[in-house]
Design a protein around this nucleic acid. Structure first.
Lengths: 207, 207
DNA sequence: AGCAATAAATGAACGGTGTTCAAAGAACGG
DNA sequence: CCGTTCTTTGAACACCGTTCATTTATTGCT
């Protein structure tokens, strides 16, 4: 009886379709412009139908969040394969910056809207794209420490957090306080990396 | 004819009262919960009356923004009087962090909501609280460079931008992605400062 | 004091929002 | 063909920001 199977498939397809259209709306006009009614209009269903597939508007946003973060992770992963720690950090920073500047509304959704939307992303300490991405940075920082090219008294997790916060700060200030930054984001990221990475050989032992 | 004067004063007082109540609402429940109707209710006027004093809801938000930023500036200024550059940077960071963590909704309003709300703050390159605050950081960074305790190849403006972005990143991630950071914000700020400030005497000339 | 002119405040409406639920419709199994 | 089950929806509720003609209050003048 492949009939319930087909129904299930159709149901999943519709759900996917809704998400796709919602994604487009968010990317084009931001999360604030994502309205259940307009979304229902766009997929040619009644508003009430959306609630058969999603608990509410926030549930859609959450789903878009995890997908967006998965994209971010996918962008970071290649950069994380670079051997040289300093260069790796630099490439990670570039990749993160590029993602943020090219998917501004997605970035806003993940990192700058309500905390409840992105809460899920950091829960599964092992599986979620949040911890996975973070782990890439931690490893890079640890490698940098192993090469003696950054603060070695602080745990790599904390260095990674500061690094992430720096990147996030640069991007989010660009997005919200556009008139603030004088220098282009790329230059700021470069300086950020420079503050974190010490010179190759610190002239004998540094202390 | 002190009569028009009195009218003007009463008008200004009402405007002030509205702003005060609006501020309370924002600080308690966030900008999203600031509704013209509830605000009108709270000040015991009809909703339409608010539009005699403010162009629209965003105008109220903008006003709250500049006031919030003035508070931030007022918090930064004492810290900027410290002589020792490294310590000054540290104190500035502490003050900024404290402001952000104690006035979370105000902070969100200024730095994390719509760019149009905070656009004014950075326009007057001389007068506004934005440039004034930024100048404090630039001077601190310049002093740090003069003492030979940070990157000296990069202009102090850029260092200050990266520093600000780092602080902002730490605070805004705490606010929006609470489950993300493992270490307390204070520790992260400390590390941020540490990455920016080099050791007092870099063992002879460092290069 | 009473009246015209001016200023202040508002009620009601418009078009929008998220969400719910009883009712209608379509698809299925017997 | 009918009854059951699943899907879809129209209509409603309670909000929202904003506008504008109308009403209410205040002032200046006779």
């Amino acid at each position: 009886m492949g009939i319930t199977e087909r129904k299930e498939r159709q149901r999943a397809e519709l759900r996917e379709h809704i998400l796709q259209v919602a994604r487009d709306m968010v990317m084009k006009e931001g999360f604030g412009a994502l309205s259940m009614r307009k979304l229902a209009d766009a997929v040619e269903y009644a508003p009430a139908t959306l609630y058969l597939h999603f608990e509410n508007r926030d549930a859609i946003a959450r789903e878009l969040c995890v997908r967006g973060f998965q994209e971010l992770l996918a962008v970071l992963e290649p950069a994380a394969t670079v051997k040289d720690p300093a260069q790796r950090l630099s490439r990670l920073a570039e990749a993160y910056l590029a993602f943020g500047m090219e998917n501004t509304e997605t970035y806003r959704l993940i990192f700058m809207e309500d905390a409840r939307l992105s809460a899920d992303l950091f829960q599964d300490k092992q599986e979620g794209p949040g911890p996975k991405s973070f782990a890439l940075l931690v490893r890079a920082c640890a490698a940098l420490q192993a090469a003696g090219r950054t603060l070695d008294a602080t745990p790599p997790e904390r260095l990674a957090e500061v690094f992430w916060a720096g990147l996030h700060g640069i991007i989010s200030l660009k997005l919200t306080c556009s008139g603030f930054q004088g220098a282009p984001a790329e230059a700021l990221v470069e300086t950020l990396v420079a503050t974190l990475v010490h010179a190759p050989k610190p002239a004998r032992r540094s202390r």
